[in-house]
């Protein structure tokens, strides 16, 4: 923990020193410019940050519509594929064990338990910006916002499937008292930032014997 906080301080100092240096250089350059008109290098120094920002803005202006178009074309299909993939793995496990290893009952209905421990898994799923646009239009008319329901249920199914896989990998026979939680990745008041939902499933793995 100590090393980490030291690291943060070091990063902060680095950023601060860069900012101070840039300010000093640009201010000295602008001070020089008043006296000497023909200083090409210092002019570049002064304009370099602005050029960089311009380039970044141009790249973003091209990249964002391209990605939105990509999302419009393929994100629905990708979501369907994810749901299918999860369902396929789920049915594999069902046929392997003969039943669902998860249950929400609390406590033992069987007394021959020799080991118990917590099992969890999670998945962070987000709708694409195209889906957000559709949801916004849906929101104007009211009623059910189906696209969000689809994304979140895909995340939930994936999270539960991972819980089954984790339980089997760690050698539990069954998972009881399963709870499913959702948490947003960024605060709701924040307009920008990541729009994603974390679905988190946990339960108690038990081993009979």
């Amino acid at each position: 923990m100590m090393t980490k906080s030291k690291g943060y301080t070091r990063h902060g100092l680095l950023v601060l020193s860069v900012v101070i240096l840039t300010t000093l250089i640009s201010s000295s350059v602008s001070a020089q410019d008043r006296y000497s008109e023909e200083s090409g290098l210092s002019g570049i120094c002064f304009l370099a940050p602005i050029f960089l920002l311009t380039i970044f803005g141009l790249v973003w202006a091209i990249l964002y519509p391209t990605m939105l178009l990509w999302a419009f074309l393929f994100s629905g299909k990708k979501l369907d594929n994810m749901i299918l993939n999860t369902a396929e793995r789920e049915s594999q496990i069902f046929s392997q064990l003969g039943k669902d290893p998860l249950s929400t009952v609390d406590g033992g209905y069987r007394k021959d338990v020799n080991k118990a421990g917590i099992v969890w898994s999670g998945a962070v799923y987000g709708p694409s910006h195209w889906h957000l646009l559709i949801a916004w239009i849906n929101n104007l008319f009211g009623g059910s916002v189906d696209i969000f329901q689809k994304v979140i249920s895909a995340g939930r199914a994936e999270s539960m499937q991972r819980l089954r896989e984790t339980a089997i990998r760690e050698g539990w026979d069954e998972v009881i008292n399963v709870r499913i939680d959702t948490a947003v990745m960024s605060p709701g008041t924040n307009k920008k930032g990541i729009r994603a939902v974390e679905v988190f499933a946990y339960g108690t793995g038990i081993k009979y014997g």
Partner: peptide, 26 residues
């Protein structure tokens, strides 16, 4: 990673880095 996940968020789907982050923090 935050920037990459922001870009991934535009096209939707799972954000692996954040799944990983929450797993580590748990």
């Amino acid at each position: 990673k935050d920037i990459l996940q922001g870009l991934k968020n535009i096209v939707g789907g799972e954000l692996r880095a954040y799944t990983n982050l929450l797993e580590e923090s748990r």
